[in-house]
Design a protein around this nucleic acid. Structure first.
Lengths: 201, 201
DNA sequence: CGTCAATTTGAAGAGGAATTCAAAAACTGA
DNA sequence: TCAGTTTTTGAATTCCTCTTCAAATTGACG
């Protein structure tokens, strides 16, 4: 029998297991047994904690988003120079490679968000927070005279997040010419034009 | 009994039915019965034409991509002015609204492309063709002296397609502030910076 | 009109997945 | 240690989907 755990611990385990199962089988392809297998439990045990699988999936997606976003904020918090902040943030929004689990998970939401309002709201809220994050960097840089913005900071921020999203899809789809490095350069090309700064640090 | 049709006609019907079914249930959630219902047939009839459902799904995705791309080329062919071409092409890459079926279908591929090589290849080839399309517009405009490009035409083209993709997701996810018009303006903001042209025509 | 081949149906069966639940196992606290 | 509670299992049941296939229907062609 699998090691017995407290309610809270087990729920956390299951959220992790669901994340992996979603990545492996797709948000619309996950089955109870997939989650159970990832967690090393039986279907019955999963059902004991989450009588409704779809609730667990939403929690897993939510947790994945939060983790992704907080990780970015944490990296940001270690820096002060706006140029460095911008460059590091662009990199932290891209997958490390085609298998990056955080981005793979987020990508699963893209299609589902059009069908499922809950996923739409989740994805939209992540987008908006990332836009705010970039906007803060851009505004600070502009205030310090380091950046000369070519448009509203919100416009540039929206485009930066949009570019990250899109290249995340390209990389996980294994575009033969666009990997993490190339994608970063492409986004930086825009960032340079938008900030009037050559972004070398 | 549903009207009997020739092999070719029925296969086209089924591809259309599969497109609708994918949009409704997700690429990993579609079932034989969904496709049959969309086509007004029984599961047996679907299986008679496509013994393997996944083959039908690939064909449906392929057909959807081709339709989307050819539609854009057709709009492009009616124009000569590079500025007009660029503006019209940007608009034609965005969904008409959250329910736009062509974009909804493409969005379904995003997550699946990370798991399924065939979908990855399909999506990558669409991306590359769209990049070429933009590149031709940019190069022509540059040659005519209308555009003063801020970077490689391939870099700008890649970013333009990436922005379209990403805003397609935002719009189908029903972002409350970003609709087709707003997305077009956001992309145009980048296009202006990248071409040095204010893109009024 | 009648024959033939192609298409479609509907029912039957095989295989899975979700759900339920009684029993077992594992932890808790006295 | 032991009683009580929580967690997990595993088997039984139900539900649903895919698959198969014989029979029915349709349309084409002579």
């Amino acid at each position: 029998m699998a090691q017995r755990k407290s309610r809270d611990d087990r729920r956390l385990d299951l959220i992790e297991a669901a994340r992996r199962a979603i990545i492996r089988h797709g948000i619309d392809g996950v089955q109870l047994s997939h989650v159970a297998e990832e967690a090393g439990l039986t279907s019955g045990a999963v059902l004991y904690h989450y009588p409704d699988l779809s609730e667990l999936l939403v929690e897993a997606q939510h947790a994945g988003m939060e983790r992704f976003y907080e990780q970015r904020l944490r990296q940001l918090a270690t820096l002060t120079d706006p140029v460095e902040k911008l460059v590091v943030t662009i990199r932290s929004g891209l997958p490390t490679g085609p298998l990056d689990p955080d981005v793979r998970l987020l990508n699963e939401l893209g299609g589902a968000a059009g069908r499922n309002r809950v996923y739409g709201v989740l994805l939209t809220s992540l987008y908006d927070r990332q836009v705010s994050m970039y906007q803060a960097i851009l505004d600070t840089g502009a205030a310090l005279g380091v950046f000369r913005l070519s448009a509203d900071s919100v416009t540039i921020a929206r485009n930066l997040v949009a570019l990250e999203d899109a290249y995340g899809y390209r990389i996980t789809a294994r575009h033969p010419l666009i990997g993490p490095g190339e994608a970063a350069e492409l986004i930086l090309s825009y960032a340079r034009a938008a900030t009037g700064n050559d972004l070398n640090h």
